[in-house]
Amino acid sequence: MPIKPKTHDKEMKKHKAAAGEAWILRLYVAGQTSNSLTAFENLKKICEEHLGCQYTIEVIDLQKNPQLAKDHQIIAVPTLIRKLPTPVKKIIGNLSNTEKVLVGLDLRKVT
């Protein structure tokens, strides 16, 4: 059941992502492991808090689409890829370290 590609289309909340900018995020997982579930939950939370308005999360289960691992150069799971806005960013892990996720997604400058 749980992980389904979801589209959120809410109004912008707190943070700085430029208004009107569409975010496309891809989360690669391998089956429903605890890491996958945690990552998805974390991602949802971060998106809601920081992106607010337009973002798309695609969840790709590599077990169902093994070919995509090769095509998209995925080794570690979970892997999060920011397709848009460019440049493409790559983050791995279950996204539990929010600070790092924000840095990785260019939502916060390294302090």
């Binding site: 979970p78 892990g93 790092k100």
Partner: peptide, 19 residues
Amino acid sequence: EIEETGEYDLEGLFIRLGS
């Protein structure tokens, strides 16, 4: 280009290899 944000594994590699 890789930021590590928590636990992960290399299942992607295994899947890739397996396929």
